[in-house]
Amino acid sequence: MFMHNKRLQYTVRVAEPNPVLASLMLEQFGGADGELAAAMRYFTQGLGELDPGRKDLLIDIATEELSHLEVIGSIVAMLNKGAKAQLAEASMEEAELYLSMTKGGNSHTQSLLYGGGPSLTNSSGVPWTAAYIDSRGDPTCDLRSNIAAESRAKIVYERLINITDDPGIKDALGFLMTREIAHQKSFEKALYAIEDNFPSGKLPGIEKYANVYVNTSQGEGDMDGPWNSGEQWERIDDLEQTMPFDDGDGSASVVLDKADAKTAEKLAVRTASVPTGDPTTGVDLGAGAGAGRITGDDKGAAADVDDAVKMADAM
């Protein structure tokens, strides 16, 4: 059961309306790393959590994220308040009203569809979606995802702080940003309160594959570091000599019964390529200047690129 306290968790003081800034703020309202996504991620994890300590933590933070949703939504509403009043009362000249609504972002959508209230969209007007929730039901997996989510949200708040000089908004955003830090610390503690928290899940990895680093991108820019070199790693640079990892030949195969094998053979015969000859294609028939080489000298070979450029210059 929830009870709403009418006081915000942090006081919102907006110096002046700014519909464009309001639309940017929506990134933390209905965006992928916004407060609604965080609240739903932690609520759903908490409801399915078996450990009482983690369950309590997740529900606590999920509920606080709703209070943050209220703070950022209030900022959006205050930034839109002037535009909302002007649009509702038609107190401006048509041209001025139009300009005030189309300053940038999706401020016009905010004004026309939502009357200046916060919409469940990101800053580009893309609707919020449950696809943002990436929980997997394994605590070591989900806690790591939560830590990353809090980190991403913190970065977005930093960027929002940098694009406004409104001191009241900066204060509120600074509070919200700092709560992301606190939540990350809590999730880190919860993760490391689980013994043997790596790797995620129950099944162990296969030892001979777990210590291998495969240097698949080679050439200028190759770097050595603790992520690919040292006693922890068996590094593979010569891919031709070591791939595939197993004792097979690296090809794909399947065992078919007689009926399926016969049908597959018929399909292969019917769709087989003819490697001999050089068939004339629609490209050959319609080729013009700049098409490059085409089939047969008697098919009206196209001019080369230099000729095509010369022809274009002459036109």
Rank of each mutant, 00 (worst) to 15 (best):
Q9V: 12
L26Y: 00
A32I: 02
D33G: 06
D33P: 05
M40G: 05
Y42I: 01
F43G: 03
T44F: 05
Q45E: 08
Q45W: 08
G46N: 04
L47F: 13
L47C: 01
G48Y: 03
E49K: 03
E49H: 05
D51T: 06
G53C: 04
R54I: 04
T63N: 08
L69W: 06
G73D: 03
V76P: 02
M78Q: 14
E94W: 14
A95H: 09
A95N: 13
E96G: 13
Y98P: 07
S100L: 12
T102L: 02
S107W: 02
Q110F: 10
G116M: 04
L120T: 01
T129A: 13
C141I: 00
A149D: 03
K154C: 03
V156E: 06
T164C: 04
P167M: 01
G168F: 06
I169R: 07
D171W: 07
F175Y: 15
F175L: 06
L176D: 01
R179D: 12
F187Y: 14
E188M: 14
A193M: 04
I194Y: 09
E195A: 11
N197G: 06
N197Q: 12
E207V: 10
K208W: 06
G225Y: 13
W227C: 02
E231D: 12
Q232A: 10
W233F: 11
R235S: 14
Q241G: 14
F245D: 02
F245I: 09
G248Y: 00
L256I: 02
A261K: 12
A264R: 09
A264K: 07
A272S: 12
D278K: 15
V283N: 09
A289W: 01
I294M: 06
D297Q: 07
A301S: 07
A303R: 02
A303I: 09
V309F: 14
